[in-house]
Design a protein around this nucleic acid. Structure first.
Lengths: 209, 209
DNA sequence: CTAATCTGATAATTCCCCTTGCCAGATGCA
DNA sequence: TGCATCTGGCAAGGGGAATTATCAGATTAG
């Protein structure tokens, strides 16, 4: 076919074609975070995204498959940031159950609340958009649940009460944390992160000293 | 003004004007449950709703203010059903913490999973639609949290660990339950309701015998 | 310097949906 | 039975957004 598409072209503005493309993609990601996170996904048009990114509508489709794909990219970027913060916190955490739990929760909550727009995208705009995005959300929840489950299972002495299912307990912890974050997002004033962490730690490390 | 609106008119099909209006409203509610719960809120047009309800598009606005108002009505009806089931279960529950918790959870989970379409509306389609609907969801979560908090506070002996905030614990329990339900909805096969109830009861009545 | 390539703005085309109006047929009241 | 009222089908005006095309101006390679 004659559609080369990935031809190098020439440099422009001091950047190669690939660099300019990456630059545009980044601008679109930021525009998506800003608009999806303030006026919402459904209310945001492609034209608005391009205006926010100071970008020609024509280039939108060169960088992103669709508005939904951009939403997913914005989400993925945020999820990756939070995940890395959580993994770093766990790696640096003390061995005792309560300490590990507290530090991991703090990293997760701080990461989730760091940017109000990202929080809105994560907890509201991503929900119920399409089967694809639902599967993606499910994957993310599942990976957190796996992480929590492995942490719980490794704790000595065991903190899981008999009768409780390991994976379900992990899903419950992740969901409860999300629930407190969402509740705090909708409420007035600043969320009391310490109280959230304390409450969740108490509830989910019952047996630990 | 001359807009009477609520003029009686005459009987038709054996029903008064008010009865016919109510009948149409009910058909629209069922149509909303069916379409919002299968193809989704965003993908459902007013024309489709009217066709599903075997109703003239002209009458839509006579019964409902907007598509969003219909979504809210569908949601409210479902929420009310589940709430009544939960209240009935609590009223008939034994006094011991675990027993109360188990029965209330069973009523809630059974009610939430009774109709897959209602579950989808409740947990996916209602999210992130508008500030109004978000406030409504928040109200519902809040009322469940109040209910749980009052139950927890009344239990003897106290089951809440020191350091845990009462209201936050209640929000955490409600969110964890929702999370397990959502996780089960997305997964293959039938949800293991007994395991869900057992896990949640274990986690949230730690001190109880 | 000149020509080729890239960029940004504008807009046109197309499509879909909301919303309201009209008309023929059905139904109930006198 | 005749007339008023209700109902369902049809559709058309109006608006908004997605997607692509065109064109003038800017920038770089030769």
């Amino acid at each position: 076919m004659s559609e080369t598409g990935t031809e190098d072209g020439r440099r422009y503005g001091g950047m190669s074609a690939a660099e300019r493309s990456e630059e545009r993609r980044l601008r679109l990601l930021d525009a998506g975070l800003e608009l999806f996170g303030t006026r919402g996904y459904a209310a945001t048009t492609i034209e608005q995204l391009c205006a926010q990114a100071r970008l020609n509508p024509r280039y939108f489709y060169a960088e992103v498959d669709s508005r939904e794909a951009l939403l997913r990219a914005v989400y993925d970027r945020h999820v990756e940031e939070v995940r890395e913060a959580v993994l770093a916190a766990i790696a640096a955490a003390p061995p005792d159950p309560r300490g590990r739990m507290s530090l991991a929760l703090r990293a997760f909550i701080d990461g989730s609340l760091a940017d109000e727009r990202a929080a809105r995208v994560n907890y509201f705009e991503m929900v119920g958009v399409s089967p694809d995005l639902e599967q993606r959300r499910r994957e993310v929840l599942g990976s957190y649940a796996d992480l929590v489950a492995s942490q719980i299972a490794a704790m000595e002495p065991p903190i899981l009460p008999p009768g409780a299912d390991l994976r379900m307990s992990a899903v419950a912890l992740v969901s409860a944390t999300d629930g407190l974050i969402i509740d705090a997002l909708g409420g007035p004033g600043e969320p009391d992160r310490d109280a959230m962490i304390a409450t969740l730690t108490e509830l989910f490390t019952p047996g630990a000293p």
